[in-house]
Nucleic acid binder design. Sequence first.
DNA 1: AACAAAGTGTGCGCTGGCTCACAGTTTTTA
DNA 2: TAAAAACTGTGAGCCAGCGCACACTTTGTT
Lengths: 238, 238
Amino acid sequence: MQVTRQCEHCQHKLCAKRVPIFSAMSTEEINEITDLIIRKSYVKGEAIVTEGETIDRLVIINSGKAKGCKYSIDGKEQILYLYSDGDFFGERNLLTNLKASYSIVALETVHVCMILKADIRQLIKNHPEIGLKIMEELTMKLERLENTIEQMGTRTVEIRVIGALLEFADKFGMEKEAGRMVALPLSREGIASYIGVTRETVSRSMNALDEEGLIQIIGNKKIYIENIGALKNRFSKT
Amino acid sequence: MQVTRQCEHCQHKLCAKRVPIFSAMSTEEINEITDLIIRKSYVKGEAIVTEGETIDRLVIINSGKAKGCKYSIDGKEQILYLYSDGDFFGERNLLTNLKASYSIVALETVHVCMILKADIRQLIKNHPEIGLKIMEELTMKLERLENTIEQMGTRTVEIRVIGALLEFADKFGMEKEAGRMVALPLSREGIASYIGVTRETVSRSMNALDEEGLIQIIGNKKIYIENIGALKNRFSKT
DNA sequence: AACAAAGTGTGCGCTGGCTCACAGTTTTTA
DNA sequence: TAAAAACTGTGAGCCAGCGCACACTTTGTT
């Protein structure tokens, strides 16, 4: 873990502008924020937050990906969130002093911006629209979890796998001639604990989709979706 | 559905005080709010909100219980939320113009207070602490959904049934000599669609718990939990 | 109180997804 | 670029939970 006050990614001090919750602000205001920011980086596998610990800051992902996950008594992992550029966590603790109810683990090298609780509270006081932005993000998180629960409760594994792949395509896919190349943020095992099944089942299910021609598996870390419409269709009509 | 401007439940105009998000306010402030409130009631089975429609108000449950639920293409119901006195919904639409992503259906006669979007926005502007209270409620909802997902992904049906019963005991249970008498807000079928299994499975699972002596089933609508500690223990150690 | 309506219990066969085991790939590292 | 480490594929057996069918009980209604 590395701590610094300079941003290695943008010389011009404006990287806070890339963060959705600050996006509506002027350059002067962004500069005011930038001075409050503490930067850190984490390597793959490192815990940014550990379940049960107290967080006194808002953490915003600058680059890299991380997972938010819980572990049951028998060691099973359930991934709740995938974070990438612009996502944040720790907002729960701006209002309360509760301990983290899940861990955040880097999936690759991750650079974050952190703003201390006291600073962000002051910031919200001075710029109420930040509070509203956070509230908006919270309702979006809620909606995603609601959909996840519906899927877990009522849909087959195949549909849940497709749902995850479509989400990855949307967040991490690159347009290619005709279709979309998707860098998977998670291994088969990771996808499994994201949708609440076993690794083997994900494996079999993805291979079936490949055989059907709905996706093309490229090694362990990429898939190519030639006809994303066909996949979406399967998702919503089954 | 019945509309009125008088509150049939409290003569003194202060029922808004019972709502957590307004609880920190003074009596004069509450009076100011009370004038903005529209009251309605719904009978059992009636939809307060229907998935897909636009909501332009914050709805607060005054008395009675309601469920928030989604329906999949093949008609399966997934219950996401249980609402009772003091709970509210519609907050998502204070900031956005999105359509409702699930329905709200009365489980019994329900009396609600409603405040129009424009009014509540004004209210938040004048009393920022209301905004913070709403934000706090949102994070609590998030946390509950996170726990639900973890349970659905990693725990057995029995544990999920126990989890639901403990939740009901906590929200709707009455202290009795030694144990707790719990009025179930949902039928077996309802519990099933709350935890994402079938009615039969809930039935079998609850009867097994009864035989084990962990709960006592009293008709279809009540259970008695003599030793709530034993139930909690089973929940967290399995 | 008596009837209708709604909800529940349970046997039985079925099957989707889990588990285990291990060989085979892919990716990382030095 | 070769070796080590991490991850994946797949067969086989098993079992939790599903789905169906139908009798039974509980609850609501008049």
